[in-house]
Amino acid sequence: MVESCGRYFDAMMHQDLDRDGLRLTKPYRLPVTGSHPDYVSAGMYDAVEQAMEEGYRLV
């Protein structure tokens, strides 16, 4: 559906963010999450915290 509007996206999982941290989100203007995991790893938390400190807006 998104592609039919001329928009494209990449998907990542919690494990990707945990493993690669903020480096994973650098190419994107707007990371979007529908996530609300019961468990947040230190790597995931640190990546989101660093992103917010760098001025990212997380949706």
Rank of each mutant, 00 (worst) to 15 (best):
G34N: 08
E49D: 12
D20S: 07
T25F: 06
A42H: 12
M13K: 09
G21E: 05
M52K: 15
E3C: 06
E3K: 14
S4G: 06
M13L: 12
H14F: 06
E3Y: 10
G55C: 02
D16H: 09
L30K: 10
Q50T: 14
H14R: 03
A47M: 02
L22W: 00
L22Y: 07
M1V: 11
A42R: 14
C5A: 15
H36D: 08
M52G: 00
G43L: 02
D10L: 05
P27W: 03
V40C: 12
P37M: 04
D20I: 00
T25I: 15
L22V: 13
G55M: 00
L22N: 05
E54M: 09
L22S: 07
E3N: 14
M44G: 08
E53T: 12
S35K: 05
T33R: 07
V2L: 15
A42T: 12
H14I: 00
D16M: 04
R57C: 08
M1K: 12
A42K: 14
Y45H: 13
G6W: 11
P31A: 05
T33W: 13
H14V: 00
Y45I: 01
Y28D: 10
R29E: 13
A47R: 03
M44I: 13
L58S: 01
Y56I: 04
T33Q: 08
V40D: 02
M44A: 15
L58G: 00
L58P: 00
